[in-house]
Amino acid sequence: MVWSDARVQQLSREFVTVADEAYMLYPEDEWNLKRVADAPQHRFFKAYGERMPEGDWHHPGTKQGLYMIGPDGEYLEGRFAASGLPDDITARLERALERWQTLRKEKGYANKAVPRVVSSAPPEVADRPFVLRVHSRDLPRHEGQQCRFDPARDQQAGWMDFTRWAWNENWLALDDGRALVPDADGPQQQPVDPRLVRRIAQQVLIDNVRGQAGTWPETAVKHATLTMERGPVTKGRATIVYRGEVELDDGQRSIRAELYGEGLYEPKVRDLERFELVALGTRTGAHTFNQRNDDRGPAPIGFAIVRWRPEPLPKEPGANVERRQR
């Protein structure tokens, strides 16, 4: 709703835009706070926060929000738990840029053009050679239910209405994708390494549709199988069909799902060029912050798991374009 607004997108280009995890920047528990105390990003963020007007910085408490910050940590605008309304964010961005005009002249900041960048992945997976991007969404519970954001209906929806269209994502990095490619000398249908299947199930087949939930403990994996079947080679590429089942249950929550997917493999370069898998099934229960206490199921849920590669850089003549990630 906010980021799709054209004016917000336009104004954001005046900034060095960055997304980062609030709890790692400014933890709310003592142990983690001590751990990051000397980290430059924490010190920078903390110093900025202490310059914010009362009410806009939430301490103690969550630091989730949107913040507009000068290069040396100067306050420009911002708020914890900033609203999801484009008009409010637009107003904050505009005020920030007005203050910036004054600040940059006072301090002699160069104000050079900000390079266009493409959004990346979380830093722990972004540079890994084989990355799976996982999306989760509720499946329809009755005929005609869309489970998607409808601008006509939802543009001005209230905060808790997000459950109508909620989806989330998760990431998993592997050392390489060859574990998902059948051995050329083996039978046509082969099992995917059970350790990998269990790892996928434990770490990303998680009901986080409405919010974070923990990974599954080892003991929760009651069943996790995936087979891969070689198809014909066409123009130097071989198709692969995946089929499987998972059953996860830790006593508080469960997921039972069937898996089906397709891959495209280039034997010459040993590259799993494309990997796409869906897991469709039934979930029950609730866990940590996934906001299912009033919706414990059983209810249908779906996952889409695909190989992710960094998005192509936008093609603009003369543009100073870079990919910025840690």
Partner: peptide
């Protein structure tokens, strides 16, 4: 760059 930062944190 001498530019401001827009931080989105969750």
């Amino acid at each position: 760059l001498g530019r401001p930062i827009l931080l989105w944190t969750m």
